[in-house]
Design a protein around this nucleic acid. Sequence first.
RNA 1: GCGGACGUGGUGGAAUGGUAGACACACAGGACUUAAAAUCCUGAGUUCGAAAGAGCGUGAGGGUUCGAGUCCCUCCGUCCGCACCA
Length: 874
Amino acid sequence: MANERYNAPDREKHWQQVWDQGEIFKAREDHAIPKCYVLEMFPYPSGRIHMGHVRNYAMGDVFARFKRAKGFNVLHPMGWDAFGMPAENAAMERKVHPGTWTYANIDTMRGQLKSMGLSLDWSREIATCSPDYYKHQQKLFLDLLKKDIAYRKSSKVNWDPVDHTVLANEQVIDGRGWRSGALVEQRQLTQWFFKITAYADELLRDLDTLTHWPEKVRLMQANWIGRSEGMLVRWGLDTATAPPGLIELEVYTTRPDTLFGASFLAVAPDHPLAKAAAEKDAKLAEFCDECRRLGTSVADIEAAEKRGFDTGIRAVHPFDPTWQLPVFVANFVLMEYGTGAIFGCPSGDQRDMDFARRYDLPVVPVILPAGEDAKTFTLKNKAFEDDGVMINSRFLDGMSTKAAFEAAASRLEKQTLNGAPQGQRKVNFRLRDWGISRQRYWGCPIPVVHCGVCGVVPVAERDLPIELPEDATFDKPGNPLARHPTWKHTTCPSCGAPATRETDTMDTFVDSSWYYVRFTAPHSATPVDKVAAQYWLSVDQYIGGIEHAILHLLYSRFFARALSDTGHLTFASNTREPFSALFTQGMVTHETYKSQDGYWLLPNDVRFEGEGNGRRAIEISSGRPAAIGSIEKMSKSKKNLVDPDDIIAHYGADCARWFMLSDSPPERDVIWTEAGVAGAGRFIQRVWRIVEDIADAVPEIALPRPQSFGADALSVRKAAHRSLDQVGRSIEALRFNVAVANVHEFCNALQAAHGKTGPDMAFAAREAAAFLVTMIGPMMPHLAEECWARLGYNTLLANEPWPAVEAALLVDDQVTIAVQVNGKRRDELVISRTANTEEVEAAALRLEPVIRALEGRPVKKVIVVPQRIVNVVG
RNA sequence: GCGGACGUGGUGGAAUGGUAGACACACAGGACUUAAAAUCCUGAGUUCGAAAGAGCGUGAGGGUUCGAGUCCCUCCGUCCGCACCA
C-alpha cells in the first residue's frame, strides 16, 4: 500500500472550516441536557499568542471535546481581557490609539487561536474594552454603589510623580515606579473601593468547599485573607506624659494571655499618637519620616532591624494601675493592620524580643513549655511562641494558654476604662478593601458625576454606557481623561447644575471578575441573564496560570457573591462559588542561548553540533560558538521563545497540542524541545499509517459481529476497550501525559497484532481503529477527523459519542500475580482470576523460586491479596 | 523567618500501601536500502556473572507494616508563595 504522509497544515485548515460551517461547537440553550462549562483564563491581547497560551488552551480543549463526546452540553467560550496599560503605552510610543492597537491584536490572536483548532463557541466572544461589555459593568457598579459595596474613601496610595499615576504595590520596585523609575511618593487620595472585607469570613469559610481546587491555591487565599481572633485593649495613658487630650491608646492583640509579659507599647510612625508626640519632638518627627521613606524598599527588608523611638509617654497596665510601660514609635508596627498599635511581650514574640534586647527592656517569661521547670526556665534571644502553662502571670498562673486567653479576655470585657469596657473581642483580617480607581484612560469609566451641590451622584442608567472619548491624547503623562478638554464636563443628573465626570477608570481586574458570568449570555440586554446563568454556572472546569492564585480568583469569588447580593445571580447551591474546579497548569520553558558578546539569542538563531555532553550551540549568523544556558520560562527578555505560528505552519496544530500534553504532568513546567516536537510529528504519521493500513485491509464500514473471537482478535479487543477506558479516565482527571502514554501503549499493542487475519480479526481491527481515532480525538482533533473519514465514515468525529466499553473485556480470566517471600519478589503466578485464597496459596508454595528462597524454613504466614500479590512469610 | 510543594534510570516521567522504572525522548545493535532519511525489530537501572541467577536500588537516616517511592519522624537539597499581620 502506497501510504501518503499525512499533510497536517493542509488538512487542519479543511477541518477547521468544516467545524466552523457546521457550527459544531456552539453551546445549545437546551437546559434539559446536562451541561459542562469549560473555561480557560481569557488572554490579554498583547499581540500574539505564546506557547503558554497553546498549553493552556490545548488542555481546556481536550477536556471540552471529551465532555462533548460524553454527551454534555458544553460551553467553551473565548474572549479578551482587553483593557490595560500596555495599550496606553503603545499609544504613547507608537502614536496609535489604544483601541486600534487592541482590536488589531485581537484579530491577530483570534486567527492564531483558530489555527489551533479549538472547539470554541466563537459566537459568544467578548472583549472587555467594548462598550457592549463595559456598559453592563457600569450598571453593576451602580448596583454595588446602591448596596454600599462600592464606596469612596481617602487612602494612602503609591504615587508616581513622573507618570502622574497611582501604582499598585507590585508596580513599585525598590521604592521606584516600575516604568518611570521615579521615587514613589505616598499620597493621600480619595479613591473608589469595593467592600470585599464584608465577605472576608465567607470567602475564607467557603474555601473548604472548593475540594477540586489545588490545596496550594486555597492555602494562599486563606493566608491572604488572614483571619485572626483577638482583642482590642484600651490602655490608659499617664496624662503627665501624654500629649494634651490623649488619655488612652487602643491596641490589637491575639495574645491577651501574655499581658503579664508586656514590657512596652509601640505605635506605627503614622499613628495619631506618634504624630501628636512628634509635634513637640523634632527628633521623633525625624525618626517617623525616616520610617516612612524606608516603606517598601528592599533595603529595609534586608536590614529588617527592629528600631524604635521612646516617646516618653507612659501607659498603665490594665491589670495593675501601679505598673507603667513606655510607649515607643516602632518601624515594624503597621498602621494598616489592627489599630496601628501593639503591646510588646518579648518572651512570647520574636519581633518583640528583638526589640526588647535592642532597647534593654525587661523580658519576663510567661509561658512555660512542656517539660521545662519554672524555676530554671530562661529565655535568651529566642522567644517561645507556642502553647504551654502560664507562669509569672498572677491570676493566670497555672492555666493553659487557651484558658488564660479566655480568663484575661473576660476580665478585660468586664473592666471599664473611661466609662467603656477595657477590652473587646475582635476578629481581624489581613484582607483590605479592594481599591479599584486607576488614573488611566484605557479602562472602564466609573459612572458617577461630581456635583458642587449634590456631591457624588450616580449616572442615570438610561445614560449608560459612559463611553471613553475617541479623541484622547497620549503624548504626555497623566490621565488622558482628566485632561480631555470636554469629556468630563456634564450636568448633574440630580439637580442639573454643571458638574464633572469621574475621571478614574476601573482596575482591569474588575473586568475579569465577572466575564465568566457574561459568557453564559453574552448578548443579553441586562448584565446577566439569570436563567442562563443559573443553568451554566458554576464553571465546571477552570484552567489557568498559578500567577492568578490570589487576586483574580479572589476578586471573582467576591464578585459572584456581590452579584448575588445585588440580585443579578442566583446560586442553586448553598455556596456562591463561581469555579467549582480549578486547575493551574505549569509554565512552558526552554533552553537559553547567549552569544559571545553576551546577547541573548533566539532558538532560531542557533544550530547544534554533537550530542550529550558534547552538544554545542553555534550562532548561525556569525558561525561562532554560543553558550547554552539554563532552562527558563519562555520570555521576551531571554529570547528563549518559540513562535506557535512557526510550529503550526511546520508541524501542524495537532503536533503542537500533542507535544504539550505528552510527558510532563500538566501542573508542572514543560520543557519545549525540538526533539520532542519532532517525536510528536513522527507519532502523528504513525497513527495515520496504522489507520490507513486497517482502512485498506478492512474497507467495510459495518462488519457483522462474529459469534466468537480467537485469541488474537480477543487480545486486540481487550487492548482497545481497556485503552479507551484508561484514556477516558486520564482525561477526566486532567492527567494528559498519562492519557498520551495510554494511547502509545495501545498503538504498540496494535502494531504487535499487525498481519493477523480472519473475520474475527477484521472486526476487531476496525473496532480498534475507530477506538484509536476516538481516543486521540480530544487531543489531536484534526488528525482524528481525517482518520475518521479515511475509515469511511461520513459523519464528523466531533459529533460522535465516546463509545461504551464492554465491561467483560476489561477483566482477564487469568491474572498474573507477584509472589514475594518475606516481602521480596521471587516469582510470578498466572492463575484463574476466580481462584480462591487457598488455591492461590497452594500454587504459590509450589513455585520453585519460592521453595528455594525459603531455604527450608517453615512457612509462618501467607498473605494473599486477591488478584494482586502473595507474600509468603517464613 | 513563616508556610507549602517536590526529590525515582542518561533525560521527561509512570506506579488505589501490593511485581519500581509504564510510556516517551536520547542511546546501542540489527533488518530494509546502492546509500541516506523514513520505517520495522531487539537491548538497556546498577553491580557480580558467559548464562541461569543473585546482591543493591525511588535525596540521607530512622520508624510503622507481612509488604513503603507512597504513611510517620529527623536531616539535606531544589523550587514556589508570604514578608515584620501583633
